[in-house]
Design a protein around this nucleic acid. Sequence first.
DNA 1: ACAGAATGTCGAATCGATTCGACGAATCGA
DNA 2: TCGATTCGTCGAATCGATTCGACATTCTGT
Lengths: 343, 343
Amino acid sequence: MATIKDVARRAGVAPSTVSYVLSGSRKISEDTRLAVRAAVEELGYHPRASARTLRSARSHVLALAVPRVPGKYRGADGTFAIDISDAARGHGYDVVLITDLAGVAAMRRVAGSGMADAAVLMAVEEHDARAAALREMGFPAALLGRSEDAPGLPWVDLDWEASVALALRETVTAGHRRIVFLSSAEHEISARRGYALHGLAGARLVARESTADLRIVPSSGEPEELGRALREALAARPAPTALVVQHLILLPHLLDVITAAGLRVPEDLAVVLVGSFPDDLGGRPLPRIELPVTEMSAAVVRLAVGAVGTDGSVPSGAQPPHRLIAPRMATGSVIRPPSEPSS
Amino acid sequence: MATIKDVARRAGVAPSTVSYVLSGSRKISEDTRLAVRAAVEELGYHPRASARTLRSARSHVLALAVPRVPGKYRGADGTFAIDISDAARGHGYDVVLITDLAGVAAMRRVAGSGMADAAVLMAVEEHDARAAALREMGFPAALLGRSEDAPGLPWVDLDWEASVALALRETVTAGHRRIVFLSSAEHEISARRGYALHGLAGARLVARESTADLRIVPSSGEPEELGRALREALAARPAPTALVVQHLILLPHLLDVITAAGLRVPEDLAVVLVGSFPDDLGGRPLPRIELPVTEMSAAVVRLAVGAVGTDGSVPSGAQPPHRLIAPRMATGSVIRPPSEPSS
DNA sequence: ACAGAATGTCGAATCGATTCGACGAATCGA
DNA sequence: TCGATTCGTCGAATCGATTCGACATTCTGT
């Protein structure tokens, strides 16, 4: 494996000169530059990451803390991980996965060992011990999702309140008058997950401002329980004509229940998804508010990279940098009006 | 940030002694050991990963090359990534994500920079340029999936031939006489993806040995095309009573087509999945051959870690270490017999 | 009591790249 | 032509942990 010394010897210059050619941080004559570049090429030289990191105190690595609900796995998480890695590469960073169930200990290890320059936390909860630990250690971090418990840390989030509100308003605009909103799972609400709370707030907002009959159903994480709740909501008379869903984990099961109830989608019941992404249903074209994974990933990486070299905090009282992303209906989303006039 | 010198000073010993206490590679007296441990504790000392790596030429990092079919994303991939990371931590390794679309260049970067000790390649294809490049560079690697193109590299794979054969045999045993097998997508077969080819071989095997009427339908990657093929297969008379599916990406769409054809699952049509995992359908209990993600991840990590420090190859002619995992039906899988006697 | 072995700790070299101050040569103005 | 710049390159220190050989001590057996 070639080192900078080998390159220097081959090019007939000092190692420091090679370094300057590669970093461009000092003026080097054209001749020397070419000789060095040729030597680099011939030897297939790559700087050793560890030596570079040791000297410069920059690893050019981001630690990505992946959410771990034991036994559960959200399909979107993998997509986020990939998009975050892509975005990081665009800034010259690599991404190391942190999957330890003991989140705080893992954060300490990351910060202490200097294996990463900053952390990105996915699926942040309200009382997020990891975020708190990072803050306390002064380690740079950016959050995917808001944490009211870690003020001072930069964050990115979809505007879930606006998302649910938009989905409901569009549904009303399409002519629906009796609408069921299936919120996030109850345990997510009681855990005070940001997306669950803000989504609920959006639904309440529309319930107040609109004349349509909007029923909010908190959904369970259990398939049977969810089915029961949905059956009950659909059995109301006059029957609801539209269903807006923020709870996506059990979506296939949900559609089964609808089918079993003898309803066709979208002829008998319009279904609108909030925070979905294209592959969720094998390409089945349901109208939806997209989860802008790529945009969120790019934003959170930008914040994390921007925090590198700082102590990760912000003058108390000041707002940390953040990005609240406005919702958009996915292209091609059309909400079918109710079959029979509903008034 | 505390260094080994700070610890040494605080404990009143030399830095080397601290190192020996931490690594346990030399005998140290009880008194000294305790003093050092106390100093480590008080200072919250963590060894700097870069310094350790520079000196020892071991990064304790595995590079995980994630499959990138532009625009597509398989839900299982994220689960693999997490399980691989967990398994790696069990061996004292971290995992860095390599998501670059230009796979070979990324492998060169990984090998050249010494940022990882070994690579794990997911979704290996027959002519896998990444695997070939790693072999050529003598960089240790392990493959998830077989590559006939990279002999000498250790690999792990589910025995897809046995998996499909098992699913079909169980279906026959349950009493079905007219069975449709939906293979992997045609483009996967023509790309000579291992799982596609081996699955097909398993189907052909059962077709030869069994008296049941088995129809093999190569499935498209396009929802419409897939729907057409399935509709046609189901329209055969006498009608098939069971469907065995290896192609899982468009599964929800598939079930839609079945429902649209007026068939109920499993009353009218038994559906058996091959290479699925529990969350694929939001908990809908279909009989299936599980994709043993955790087992495969543990195995591939073991192989990768075992290859660290070697030149990644094997005496030519000799078999590289590998693991072909036998299929199992998921617990609770029951294949419903056909409603009307089929003979 | 003393040679020799065993035990525990230390000092120094090393891994490979970065970066600062210094130094020789070329260039400039008067 | 000479002193002052400017330009390009070099040498050496440095980042922090590991590890080898050496050096005191203490222990063992006679």
